[in-house]
Every structure is written in structure tokens, then in C-alpha cells.
């Protein structure tokens, strides 16, 4: 009854949703949505450069997104830049990526799929890559969890207690860059930040501890993936944006529910 390609899409989507949960919560808590955008937009340049050097796109994405995330983190004092600076980085990365993709010789880039995702064509080897990379991200975040929470609450307090802010920044930025590479196939680079922040924002009114918020975020992310794929299947809508539409509906639902 279920097509194998739909099943593969569901497995890949669920994996991405689970990895997105702790990262998305951190992005929301730290008010770093723009930072996620900039890192995501850098991926386009990464894809274009990788193709022009005949390398796997994923390598280009990891390298360029990491470079972008590290540049923003260390070029701005304290790690939380003014949103103008982030806007500059974010949109410059997108524009440069589009230009480079258009002019580099030998680059045949499916722009729509890169921007909006292409989950229905996910292959088994890509699923294995998502599972491996995602597992690595989750393991690193879990091992650094207390430090990540402390740095979110107060970098000063963390420094005074002897924690390493450098380690926190590296864990956060590199995890985010790797996540961009994983999630690109699912929702495309334009909607990667949405995949991070919408389920987390929807979970926020329902949670009283950070860990519970991560768990609820994972659940809402999973529902969004399954709902979006179903919508895409039934109504022939693009899968990536459909997932985000479902997440948005859940967000509206929990936001209104918490107002009462």
C-alpha cells in the first residue's frame, strides 16, 4: 500500500525532524533564527562550488556552511550579532550562491530542488548519510548539553563557573552547519530555518523544562513531516513546503491554545 519511495521519504524526514529538535530549540532560545538563515543560505554557494570542482555537493555544503557559521560567530563580538549584520551575511550568501551557480562553467544545478528540497527522490545511501550525520550531531549535543544550556542562560555565568564558551560556540555552529547539509534534501535551503524554528516555537507553550521542549519539538516535527508528505501525496503539492505548512498549522494551534 505504501510506495517504497514514500516510505524512504518518511524515514529520511523523521530522522531530520529528530535532529532538528534540540538544534531548533537552541536556535529559538538564543534568538538566532537569522543565524540559521545565513548558514542555510551559504549552502547554495557550497553546492555550486562543489559541482564546479566535480565534488559531491554535500562536501561543499558542509565546508561553506561551516565557514559561514564560524565567520559570523567569531567576527561578531560575543557571538550574537546585530541583526543587520546577520541579514547582510544571510542575503549576501544567497545572492552570491545564485550568481556563482549561474556563471560557473559546467554547473548544472537544479535550482528549484536545491531551494525547495526534493525529499521524494531520496536514496537509500542518502538515508544512511542522514542517519550517520544526524547521529553524530545528536551525540555531540547530548554530551555538551549542560554547557549549551548554561551558555544560553548566561555566557558570563558559564565563564565564571569555568565552562568553555569556545567549545560551546564550536559545538553549536558546526552542528548547525552539518544539519544544513542533512536537511537540504528534505525542505531545501530556503526553508531550513523554518524546519528548525517552527516545531520548536510550536512546542514552547507546552513545555516546562528544556528537555521536555526538545521531546515535544521532535514529536511536532515528526507530525509535520508525516502530515506534509501525506498532503504532498494526496494533493500533489511540493513536499518540503507542505511539511512547513503543516508545522505552521500546529504552531498556530498551540499558540492560540496557550493564550486561553
Amino acid at each position: 500500500m505504501i510506495d517504497p519511495f514514500l516510505l524512504k521519504a518518511a524515514v529520511a524526514g523523521l530522522l531530520v525532524a529528530w535532529v532538528a529538535a534540540p538544534l531548533g530549540c537552541l536556535v529559538v532560545w538564543r534568538r538566532m533564527a537569522y543565524f540559521g538563515d545565513a548558514t542555510g543560505h551559504a549552502a547554495l554557494l557550497g553546492v555550486a562550488l562543489a559541482l564546479s570542482f566535480s565534488m559531491p555537493p554535500i562536501v561543499g555544503v558542509v565546508v561553506v556552511a561551516s565557514a559561514m557559521a564560524l565567520t559570523i560567530t567569531f567576527a561578531t563580538r560575543g557571538g550574537f550579532a546585530a541583526d543587520t549584520m546577520l541579514g547582510v551575511f544571510s542575503h549576501a550568501a544567497l545572492a552570491i550562491g545564485l550568481v556563482v551557480a549561474a556563471v560557473l562553467p559546467g554547473v548544472r544545478l537544479n535550482l528549484i530542488n536545491t531551494l525547495l528540497g526534493d525529499i521524494l527522490t531520496v536514496s537509500t545511501s542518502e538515508i544512511i548519510w542522514i542517519a550517520t550525520g544526524g547521529g553524530a550531531i545528536l551525540a555531540v549535543i547530548a554530551s555538551a548539553w549542560r554547557g549549551l544550556l548554561n551558555a544560553t542562560l548566561s555566557p558570563e555565568l558559564m565563564a565564571a563557573e569555568g565552562g568553555s564558551l569556545l567549545r560551546d560556540k564550536l559545538v553549536f555552529t558546526l552542528s548547525l552547519a552539518l544539519f544544513v547539509a542533512l536537511a537540504m534534501k528534505l525542505v531545501g535551503i530556503l526553508l531550513i530555518t523554518a524546519m528548525l524554528i517552527l516545531p520548536a516555537a510550536a512546542a514552547a507553550p507546552l513545555a516546562r523544562t528544556p528537555e521536555r521542549m526538545v521531546a515535544i519539538t521532535a514529536l511536532i516535527g515528526s507530525l509535520s513531516v508525516l502530515g506534509g508528505l501525506w498532503m504532498s501525496w494526496e494533493a500533489d503539492t511540493p513536499a518540503g513546503p507542505s511539511i512547513i505548512v503543516v508545522a505552521t498549522l500546529i504552531f498556530v494551534f498551540t499558540a492560540l491554545g496557550s493564550k486561553k
Binding site: R146, N150, L153, L157, A204
Partner: peptide, 26 residues
């Protein structure tokens, strides 16, 4: 060293009960 910041950044978005906050000291 024990340290208390002037205040925590305004409007914390992270759900954090007081007891959990204390536990984060280790």
C-alpha cells in the same frame, strides 16, 4: 569562584524551573 550576573538576559525563552537552574551548576 561563585558569581552572580547583574541579571539574566531579559525575557528568557528557555523553559527553566528554578530547581533545574540550580542543578545546572553541576
Amino acid at each position: 569562584l561563585g558569581y552572580t550576573p547583574q541579571k539574566l538576559p531579559l525575557e528568557q525563552l528557555i523553559p527553566m524551573p528554578v530547581d533545574r537552574f540550580i542543578a545546572l551548576s553541576g
